[in-house]
Design a protein around this nucleic acid. Sequence first.
RNA 1: GGGCGCGUAGCUCAGUGGGAGAGCGUCCGCCUCACACGCGGAAGGUCGCUGGUUCGAAACCAGCCGCGCCCACCA
Length: 858
Amino acid sequence: MDAARRAKLESTTRYDPAEVEGRVYAEWAERGYFTPEPEGTAAENYSIAIPPPNVTGSLHMGHGLNNTIQDTLVRRQRMAGRRVKWIIGTDHAGIATQSVVEKELRREGLDRHELGREGFVERVWEWREQYGGRIIEQLKRLGASGDFAHERFTLDDGYVAAVHRVFVALYEKGLIYRDNYMVNWDPGSHSAISDLEVENREVTDTLFRIDYPIEGSDRVLTVATVRPETMLADTAVAVNPGDERYRDLVGRHCILPLVGRRLPIIADEHVDVEFGTGALKITPGHDPADFEIGREHGLEEISVIGEDGRLTDAAGPAYAGLSAAAAQERVVADLRAAGSLGGSEPYVHSVPFSHRSGQRIEPLISLQWFCRMDELAAPAIEVVRDGRIRFTPERWGRVYLDWMESIRPWCVSRQLWWGHQLPVWYCDHCERTIVAEREPAGGECDGCGGVLRRDEDVLDTWFSSALWPYATLGWPDEAPELRAFYPTDVLVTARDIIYLWVARMIMTSLEFLDEIPFSDVYITSVVQAPDGRRMSKSLGTGIDPLELIDAHGADALRFGLLAMSSSQDVRFSAAKVQQGRDLANKLWNASRLILLNAGEAAPEPRSDAVEDRWILSRLERTIASVGECLDRFDFAHAALELYRFVYSELCDWYLEIVKPRLYDGPARGDDSAARNLLHVLGRTLAVAHPLMPFVSEEIWSYLPDRDTQLIVAPWPEADPSRFDVEAEAEVAAAIDLTRSLRRWRELAGVAPAAPLRARGGAGVHPLVARLARLDLAGEDAGEAVAAVGAIEILPSEHLDPQAVTARIEEQRERLRGEVERAEGKLDNERFVANAPADVVAGERAKLARYRAELEELG
RNA sequence: GGGCGCGUAGCUCAGUGGGAGAGCGUCCGCCUCACACGCGGAAGGUCGCUGGUUCGAAACCAGCCGCGCCCACCA
């Protein structure tokens, strides 16, 4: 260590992440540690594909946790000597991005239609150039060691080719088709959306009762509905086939009020006898349930609400052009006037809303592209059932299977401009549909030579995300990256996209590469606000990870998030982040102590004293334990194990114990403590590195004898030959006794600095004598006033006699309780007969010990 | 309606069949020559409730109460 470095170490009494992080990160990146050569096989290499954040995104706490976990896994494997690729990139995020740019246009007083499709898409690309890289830069501040040199985007040229390949193949297989079908129409984004993009919310609506006169009778059939305006599109009334009240009516007709249409009265199992009057108006054009009933019975499908949310001409001149809400008012008024309104009442039920725009879904029939899923799902179910893909925590595997087993067709077309435009062309002349990876030559129909028109729609964003782990590696080309890194190892993601994304990656990978895309799926906790609400910008409950990095450093945030993580949702805890900051600082200062006193010593494990064997044993056990925790994705325990080892074992005990040896070493020509400390420090930094990369790398740079930077230094494998049961027992006993003495001293009113006169014969461990500040006296030093374990406390001016008496009585009380408890247990014949022998023996030993101690107290 | 998860110290959470734990907070004492982002010590819990299984339950089973999430076409 040169003089300048030494001076810096001496003067820096607090670890300063802001000074370290940028410098260290730049060095890692420059040296190319993040970018592996595409060599070797996927089995020997290690890879993770990042869940691509939206280009519009900025780093939130969920990203923070998720990417910290991925980086921890990746760094650990890199140190373990594997060629590691963490695939980095962003998602074009159809609706989200389109609306951001549309909002920007609106501020300029523009509309996307004024720019036209091409102009608009160009504008979005410009926006992406300018702002789209934000989240990537933020990931770097976290310390993410991903392959940023090969950043991908779901609209890259190569990626587009992959999407087209998949679309065409699925079309040719008959899985992708075009159909008029009931879809979730989102009036907000002006597009159809998939079932998974709607969320149900509780809403209070009004439930209206409407009387439908029965043809050829003076009876009426009363139906109940929350959407009276859709009655204009009714094409039947249904009752339950088992419903006695209406059995005679099935097959007859009723007359639709206001319209006068004859509606057949049909019988269908779906109708609930209990609800309302037991008669259900059927509107196949505007209700998903009615749509299915309608298709089963071959009913006419009438649409009275258009894609603009307004009533169409089919609704009749009185209503055409009205908004749905206005139409409802008008219809209700008209029904009332006609005497057909039976009544109304408030009614709470759940209603679909668009996840994206937040608007209420308008179910309507529309011509869209769909993908049939059951055939793709079958093998994807199999690989999770047979354990080839494992979910952690396990229960998410069952959630996945439940959904997959009842999977429904997926509406893949979206009426947007930003995204993968469908590779579909129509010839209006000969009415052919051409589905092809590339536009047919000259844009002409090869049948009739007519001019082709490309389908305007784009694909659901999740369609392209479904190819993420392999399209990013060059598929469908036989790219070397694909051979080296596919399949990937782990997917780290959030539970809310198990259906939207995870399931679909598994399905497409099995279909197109005949391989699982990853073998483990780790589902992260959802990080909630400290008060248990969702963290969200709009609620004002969000906490910005970058601010925490600014304040406490990336290592602190990483440690905090890992320590918080769990198999269930967690509330964000600023205290855990501080714990991480404290740990970084502790490591820094322990290292200063060691490095500034190590002289010329080189690291070497030493067993000169029992405490050396003890710390080496504890170190190796910690290494083993942290490794096992990481193997089973138990990041919280990995973090807390590290914390516990550094704080209590290394700093509180070992450093305090060896300080004299360390300080006096040079004078005595004995650098064994320094050597051992350097060894322990080196290995500690190595296990800490995947969790806290910056502080560990920075301290590492001060260590003597290192060949490489820590990021690529060997991962420490636990060495069981260092496990030392005797040393652990001996030092543990010394620690226990020291603690008892400190407690005794405190309660007996002896000042911390005052020596405690005591006697223990030959049995007093030198560690105890020093750590408990004992003033050891000989056998003839007089009558003891108390005993702590094997140590006799002797009278001295520092003792407060009253406190001593109270303390002794307290001790006696405690021992009596213990004896009583043990006796009670051992007096129970069934315990002695049934409990395992070692448990019983242990209980007997304890009883004997407590009795002896009580005896000594008198 | 179905499913999943959770209820442990003031707070946030570990613990899943043999004597209730951590961090933070609180209280007491220390600026002890690595660190006050520190050191030593202490107080604090009918482990949601009721039954059951067991020699033994915070843990396993059943029921109940409370909270959260996911799925679902009772209009």
